[in-house]
Design a protein around this nucleic acid. Sequence first.
DNA 1: CGTATAGTTGGATTGTTGTCAAACAATAGA
DNA 2: TCTATTGTTTGACAACAATCCAACTATACG
Lengths: 118, 118
Amino acid sequence: MRLLPHPATEDIELTEVLRALSDPVRLEIVVRLALSGVMNCGEAGDDLGVHKSTASHHYRTLREAGVVITKQEGRLKFMSLRRDDLESRFPGLLDSVLSAAGIPSPALIPSADVPAPR
Amino acid sequence: MRLLPHPATEDIELTEVLRALSDPVRLEIVVRLALSGVMNCGEAGDDLGVHKSTASHHYRTLREAGVVITKQEGRLKFMSLRRDDLESRFPGLLDSVLSAAGIPSPALIPSADVPAPR
DNA sequence: CGTATAGTTGGATTGTTGTCAAACAATAGA
DNA sequence: TCTATTGTTTGACAACAATCCAACTATACG
């Protein structure tokens, strides 16, 4: 199981997080992750209306901004929100964005930085 | 005194607000407004390190995204954050961004959608 | 080993954005 | 009315971003 490169918590930049969240496609991915906890890229990108390579580009943007973490298991890559990291770096930010994006109540889904074992 | 065109509260889009806040120059302008309540464009753009026309472009972006409101009095234009509007549309969002941007405690400055009379 | 699956990468295209400089508009005050 | 002040608009330009398609990599499974 490999962990893809991503910024350390203290290196997450506010403007980069906001920029990552400011794209409708990426915001939708983030909403799905918030609702599901963990998703592989195929699930996360399903019915997004964009080519899979475009979705892959968005995964990378989210990862490099520090919004998601990605772990590979077999031929699947599991993504999850870096809820705890974001909360410690920018308290309340992710929850308010998720709430604004229409998620009923924030933090319904427990932090799941580690994907469930296969 | 004229009010420049800006979106109605219910037309403010989350992704546009996030995009407006995702530029370091614009975020700095927003931080200054949060600390000062009301500023004219000259004050807001002072020492930003960009040309005044660039700053003017950023004012427009912030206004069209629904983040600030601008009112003209004489030859000055006064900008202020749309705190109440943003709070009602996206509760907690602006405060968490301002807090993340290093403002000591959010909501220290009372909402000031209307510039102080000259 | 061959094939299917899952996702990434590179190229091409199209459109957007941040920036400056110069010209412009509007207002206040002399 | 002339001039200084305040900010906007326009044009130009380079950098970036979103997208698709095709080719590629890596893993799992027959």
